[in-house]
C-alpha cells in the first residue's frame, strides 16, 4: 500500500522527503509478509539508481537517522567492499536510537551503530540478502584499506 501510494513516480529529490518521514527500519512484517516503508524506499532507490554522491549525502547527513540508515543499506547493496567500509565505518560512532520492526511487527530498540555493524557483518539485513563483502582483514592485507581506528582508541 505504501508502495502504491507514496512511491509512485518518486524522483531522487522527492525520495528525500519520503526518507525524512520514515520513523522505523525493518524488512517484511507480519503473516502476509508486508514490506515496511523502509524496504519500499530501498527498492525505489534501486529502481531510480540515484547518484553515488546522493547516497553518500544520505549517509553523511547528521540530522535524520533513518535517512542515514537508508543510505547505508543502499550503499551496502550497491557499493563495493571498499566503499562500504569507507563510508559505513564512520557510522560506528553514531549512537542514536532507532526503532526496528521485526518480523512479528513488534518494535525493537536498536542503535545506528548496531545497524551498521549488522550491515557489515551479517549477510541478511531487513530481510534482504546482501551481496558478499570481502573481509576487512583481506582488504587490509592488500592495502586497500587502513586498519580501523575506533573513536575510543583516540581517548
Amino acid at each position: 500500500q505504501y508502495w502504491k501510494e507514496k512511491c509512485f513516480a518518486l524522483t531522487a529529490e522527492l525520495l528525500v522527503d519520503e526518507a525524512m518521514a520514515l520513523d522505523y527500519v525493518g524488512g517484511v512484517v507480519g503473516g502476509n509478509i508486508k514490506p515496511t516503508p523502509f524496504l519500499c524506499l530501498i527498492l525505489k532507490m534501486l529502481q531510480i539508481q540515484p547518484n553515488k554522491d546522493i547516497v553518500i549525502e544520505f549517509i553523511k547527513n547528521p540530522d535524520y537517522k533513518y535517512v542515514r540508515a537508508l543510505g547505508a543499506l543502499y550503499l551496502r547493496i550497491v557499493g563495493t567492499s571498499v566503499e562500504c567500509y569507507k563510508y559505513l565505518e564512520p557510522l560506528y560512532n553514531d549512537y542514536r536510537k532507532i526503532k526496528y520492526k521485526n518480523r512479528q511487527g513488534k518494535f525493537e530498540l536498536s542503535h545506528v551503530d548496531e545497524f551498521v555493524d549488522s550491515l557489515l557483518r551479517e549477510d541478511r539485513v531487513c530481510d534482504v540478502i546482501l551481496p558478499r563483502i570481502q573481509k576487512r582483514h583481506i582488504l587490509e592485507e592488500t592495502e586497500q584499506l587502513e586498519p580501523r581506528v575506533s573513536a575510543l582508541d583516540d581517548d
Partner: peptide, 19 residues
C-alpha cells in the same frame, strides 16, 4: 520503544560499551 527520549550521557555510555 521510544527513540525520542535521547539522554546524551546514557546513550554515550551504552555506545561505549558496544564499541
Amino acid at each position: 520503544v521510544n527513540t525520542d527520549n535521547e539522554n546524551e550521557e546514557e546513550e554515550y555510555e551504552a555506545w561505549k560499551i558496544r564499541e
